[in-house]
Design a protein around this nucleic acid. Structure first.
Lengths: 188, 188
DNA sequence: TCCTTTATTGACTGATTGTTCCAGAATTGG
DNA sequence: CCAATTCTGGAACAATCAGTCAATAAAGGA
């Protein structure tokens, strides 16, 4: 048998992520996708199914990479609180790019169960890692011990959302940095 | 001359707000609009121009009403900090409804200058009122005096965004309440 | 070289999009 | 009642949509 060309499906998916995060699902046409992904139209349907399946896969891919990046920051410093700060600071530094996760949640809410499941699964892994690090920071006294670790994690993620949406709304870099500082200040 | 039916244009606009906030601009068809607004298609175009003009007007209307509600909370209590808390608590209580402001920013970012201008104008009025109240709370020692009032206002709005997106993502009521509590805790 | 598999291409479908046109119903002031 | 005006409903518009089909090109295994 002949295993043949097999275009770089990962790169194509990354390109799809780039289009979807900027224009959303409804704002993206298949024409935009095939041009950005630089593949034939038929290849798109053969490889990914239909537009919705591709969108779901793009959200999954994006969430997975985002989760990896968050966890790398969280665990990249010896002291837990420094890891938490690094995660927030990375968000501030990269806030100029639209977040496909937030956009997806805003666009569809809970109306598509299969999409909500993608979000739920991605959140689970990140929440686990963040929760562990928050508890460590509480043990060393860097995060208030009287707070529930889960509540702190929720708050950190909500703050990340606030920073990213503020950036998409046109906030400047120092505004975003200030938001990050205040978020950290809230949990000490 | 004969001044005639003149359907309730305000109610129709409110209905449009209801559709847009749930489905976004691209996810809303004119068919959905005429059905929700309960007016003829031609009336829609005669009265509001085209779909984009209607959307812009809907965002403007929504932002205006939201700003009124926020300010009513802010000024509804004698102590400034209680007003601030009331604003946050109202957001928590009403977070089950999608926010057209956030959805609009996520969907379009800064790509449509006329829309961005609507947001900017709406933000200005609210920011002014909130900033005034924050300064009062700083004078009475209820909000940390070492923080810049503008930064506190930014943070409050970012927290509101975080709460609303969390709700759209499926967060429960106690999670949202906890987010509100931590946001207030951050500025004392 | 031939064969199988995969990718590309462009044309095509049927549905839906936003928008306009038009005829008629409804409504109110004179 | 009449006339002026506004709203409605449906038909029609061109454009675009997602998705399919068929033919061709490319590429590696035999």
């Amino acid at each position: 048998m002949a295993r043949i060309k097999e275009f770089d499906s990962d790169k194509a998916l990354d390109a799809a992520v780039g289009v979807f995060r900027e224009h959303g699902f409804e704002g993206t046409s298949t024409e935009m996708l095939v041009q950005a992904m630089k593949i034939g139209r038929q290849s798109l349907y053969d490889t990914f199914g239909d537009k919705w399946a591709l969108y779901r896969l793009a959200v999954q891919r994006y969430a997975s990479e985002e989760t990896d990046a968050h966890i790398a920051m969280l665990r990249g410093k010896p002291r837990a609180i420094d890891g938490i700060a690094a995660m927030i600071n990375r968000v501030v530094a990269t806030a100029n790019q639209a977040c496909l996760g937030i956009n997806s949640i805003c666009e569809f809410g809970q109306s598509r169960p299969d999409l909500a499941e993608v979000h739920r699964a991605a959140d689970h892994r990140l929440r686990h890692a963040a929760s562990e690090r928050v508890r460590q920071a509480q043990e060393t006294g860097d995060v208030d011990n009287s707070l529930a670790a889960d509540a702190v994690v929720d708050f950190l993620f909500a703050s990340i959302t606030g920073i990213r949406v503020a950036a998409r709304g046109g906030a400047g870099r120092n505004q975003l940095a200030s938001l990050g500082q205040l978020a950290l200040r809230a949990i000490v």
